[in-house]
Design a protein around this nucleic acid. Structure first.
Lengths: 193, 193
DNA sequence: ACACAAGTAGACCAATCGGTCTCCTTAAAA
DNA sequence: TTTTAAGGAGACCGATTGGTCTACTTGTGT
């Protein structure tokens, strides 16, 4: 029965996302998810392994959510707009599938773990790359050159992470809509050249 | 004699920046800075107050550094280039005044502290606003309209924070130079319109 | 009906946390 | 010279950390 495991991962995610990984103890996770300590260590060898499982859970949920949002539109320019509209919904807590907005979980976690060699850190890198691939797929529909596609994808990714960061740190809930405007300006430059 | 206090703040910053605040204990700070525990609690009422002092120290050092970099150039467009060149030097550890790059200390710290009401969180917001004012001063030299100046400043700030985040999380050391390219594209759009 | 695996609750462990306190030394001001 | 405050080293405090272990209770497959 892995329902317990799921309880554990989901409960742990909510606490970690809200308070930070190091600020939440194992016992707090157990109390929140209604699972015995023995069961936790039956499923996971250590807290770090639980963190890894939580990162996997969040990665899957986030990619599924964003992928579905981008599927709603079929043009490249439309998908780029949709990306920032989706972020806007996220920032303003209109997406319950993502829980109350507290910035990017992966950025937060990697900020807590200094050493870039760790498996935890690596998961954060992989997540960012996966999201970037979704953006690249949208940009590819624009019919730009290979170089331009890569450059625009990178610019949009930076814009996205910048908006997430500012929405989080400065509680700037309009960051996504303004980033969308910037993205449109940028896109016009690429299409016009 | 507040030399001890300075030792404390500087030693604490290096550890907090490198490993995260929650991951570093008081005793580790004491050992690194060669100060007795009594002395620490003579200067600071709690660890949180030490963290606040560390945030102040970093804020001052960072603003001084960036301010001096931007003073090297006198045109608006030049200052914008200089901003991203400065970031590039920071990311690639060519600025010893800032210590080995580990992302934005304020972004990292605010990721560790969930509650946006806390004084620690507030310091992070103030830092970001102070940096944005430096950027606004550079943009103001371009002679754009009030609305355009605000919009461009916001876009550049988002680009900056996005580049910092990606440099940190993905160890993307070229992020600043590519963001500079994006900034130029954006600037051309504003100037050409 | 019985065995076995997985769950529960929670005592327990050493280590560490932030923080207090005592005792001793140093140095500068009176 | 004497007084006073600050610093050093570190014992000590209760609480909490991640993690182990025992004892008991489930539920399921044979």
């Amino acid at each position: 029965m892995s329902a317990k495991r799921q309880n554990l991962v989901l409960g742990a995610f909510e606490l970690f996302y809200e308070k930070g990984v190091h600020a939440v103890g194992i016992n707090e996770v157990l109390a929140a998810s209604g699972v015995a300590k023995k069961t936790l260590y039956n499923h996971f060898a250590s807290k770090d392994e639980l963190v890894l499982a939580v990162l996997d859970y969040r990665n899957d949920a986030y990619l599924k959510w964003l992928g579905e949002r981008l599927e709603r539109v079929d043009t490249g320019a439309g998908k780029i707009d949709e990306l920032f509209d989706a972020l806007d919904d996220w920032f303003n807590d209109r997406e319950e599938a993502l829980h109350a907005f507290r910035g990017c979980f992966f950025i937060n976690v990697s900020g807590e773990y200094g050493q870039p060699e760790s498996a935890i850190y690596q998961k954060c890198v992989e997540h960012k790359q996966a999201v970037e691939e979704l953006i690249l797929a949208a940009v590819a529909l624009l019919g730009l050159s290979e170089d331009d596609s890569v450059e625009l994808t990178d610019a949009l990714s930076v814009l996205k992470d910048g908006a997430i960061t500012r929405a989080r740190v400065q509680a700037d809930l309009g960051a996504a809509q303004r980033a969308k405007k910037t993205a449109r300006r940028l896109l016009a430059g690429f299409l016009g050249a």
